[in-house]
Design a protein around this nucleic acid. Structure first.
Lengths: 226, 226
DNA sequence: ACCTGAACACCGTTCAAGT
DNA sequence: ACCTGAACACCGTTCAAGT
């Protein structure tokens, strides 16, 4: 591509690269322009402003997630898309913060919603229960990622980090927290990331149970109306 | 208080007021100073910088949440604190966005963690299961609030909003989403907020079942070692 | 000890001008 | 049609100075 030739897609692509590499606060219109080899004002010829770039960025993230496909094994489809969503949001840790307050879902976001509802509906979920299930699953993914990106350390804490945290805690102030840190969170082999599958299983179990209960009721009413 | 006399507590209090009234983007050091009746630079005498103000702001939010107290009825205690967390985060919609990437939990945050783990441990949860349960519950609350603050409308959508959303959607692109909107989300009486209790019940049911399963195993091993 | 004035190195965006 | 230069009204923060 010739320098100075830019379009909407390229702007969003470069914006994502900057955010991935240097964080959201490094993503300024001026930095974006510099990386595109163009003056800041040129960008405004292709997008309405920074907010439009951020909206597009969020939708780009949704586009990276796997789309579930309807079929008999709803649980596997839903699990796959939920794992994918978590992985994608983990790869772009700025994305979940960007989500907050952004009230204009893009096409990729809508497509995700549509596909998830489709899987549940085709599996036989009522409209109500499909809504409950999707809202719970999405809340879980978003919330888990929020937790992950606000851990006081990245990946596993080093011995020094653990030491500094423990000494910073006033003696006896947080007994259960200390018990948990010593006995589990700071124990060798523990990683917070592994909690994801545990929670996902609990959530899916709960949804499966609710679905089973619904099936029983609808079978019953079908029988009764016969 | 005499004008020009400021301290850390007052700075954080006024910062919260600005964010509540006008959003996070309105919270600038200069606006904060103006409202405190002081020059911008005076603030730096009491806090390290804007980041310290934001950290304090987050902890102020945690301090607003109800603290669970240990007791026999763990499920009620946990439900109460989870509802309280959701209500508080809903009252300060900027808070959940602030959480992201903030890796220095304050005392009120630690106290919340400690109290929740305390309730579960005193009820007989193993360290592992207490961790699973708390991580799931917190993910649910954070994620639910993220969803709530990124709905395409505030509270219930007006007829015009619904109309404009529906006409903006390409014909037949999102069949399941349209079905859900027409049949449920835009139906009279529906409010997304009500999904919270449904999801919370599912989450608590799942935790209760896991706890029961754990009790059975530990009773069994107690019997076998006799 | 606490507050201030001036300044620095940034922002996003408007507007009028270039080609 | 697309890009630019200069400017405006902001930011957070440093530094040296006041009281």
């Amino acid at each position: 591509m010739a320098p100075g030739r830019i379009d909407r897609a390229r702007i969003v692509e470069v914006a994502a690269a900057i955010a991935d590499e240097s964080g959201l606060e490094a993503l300024t219109m001026r930095a974006l322009a510099a990386r595109l080899g163009v003056q800041p004002m040129s960008i405004y010829h292709h997008v309405a402003g920074k907010d439009a770039v951020l909206d597009a960025l969020v939708d780009r993230v949704f586009a990276e997630m796997v789309l579930p496909t309807p079929g008999r094994a709803w649980r596997e489809q839903v699990a796959a898309r939920t794992r994918s969503a978590r992985a994608v949001l983990g790869r772009h840790p700025w994305a979940v913060g960007l989500l907050e307050g952004r009230r204009s879902p893009g096409p990729a976001n809508l497509r995700q919603h549509d596909a998830m509802l489709g899987v549940l509906r085709e599996a036989g979920f009522s409209l109500e229960l499909a809504g409950h299930a999707y809202s719970l699953l999405d809340a879980y993914v978003y919330g888990f990622v929020v937790q992950e990106v606000s851990l006081p350390f990245e990946d596993a804490p080093t011995a020094e980090v653990m030491e500094s945290i423990m000494t910073a805690v006033p003696e006896g102030e947080y007994p259960y927290l200390v018990e948990y840190a010593v006995g589990r969170a700071f124990a060798p082999g523990y990683s917070f990331g592994a909690e994801f599958e545990v929670g996902l299983t609990l959530v899916l179990d709960a949804i499966e149970a609710a679905f089973a209960a619904e099936q029983v009721t609808s079978d019953l009413s079908a029988t009764m109306s016969r």
